[in-house]
Amino acid sequence: MQITILNGNSNPKDTSFEQYISQVTSQLESDHDITNIKLRKLKIKLCTGCFGCWVNTPGKCIFNDDTDMIRESYMRSDLVIFASPVIMGFTSALLKSAQDKLLPLLHPNFTLLKNEIHHKYRYKTYPLVGLIVSKEPKMQDNDISIITDIYNRIAINLNTSLSFSITTQSPVKELMYAVNNF
């Protein structure tokens, strides 16, 4: 299976997060083809909300930055893992900067899904998505479930489903099980 990990950790000094992702990567590598993208090393121009990716250069962002490579890897994958420390109760701004730039993968036209309006899909199939987060100090009890709920919504918009949502406190084994059994 082709797997892309979008690592949204902006702080290289957060070694425990990096170690967890390294462990995940090395264990997955034995059975899968892994692309590990450290977002902090890329040039990401923030989305300007111009919709050029739908009306000017349909399917592509009009700006030339490293997100073309992210979208390419995203669409080549069977599973995309969003990975990020929790900062101020949500996944990182760095990860969000890459997620905003996934808009070109959708189509401007609409579709009706369970009495909700969503965008039509540009591609026939999209990868499944998973979520790994590391907790921050002073989290509220429901923070992780709120993040998971939002990622479930993101998955609907990206025509897929969230196959797992785990924290770095869970043993890597648990993630391996989730990946190998979906």
Binding site: G49, K96, N157
Partner: peptide, 20 residues
């Protein structure tokens, strides 16, 4: 803010992070 992929635009999240 406008809803961007079901949450806040990255810019807004950067702002939130400065309030750590």
């Amino acid at each position: 803010f406008p809803l961007y992929i079901d949450s806040m635009p990255a810019q807004v999240k950067y702002f939130f992070e400065t309030l750590k």
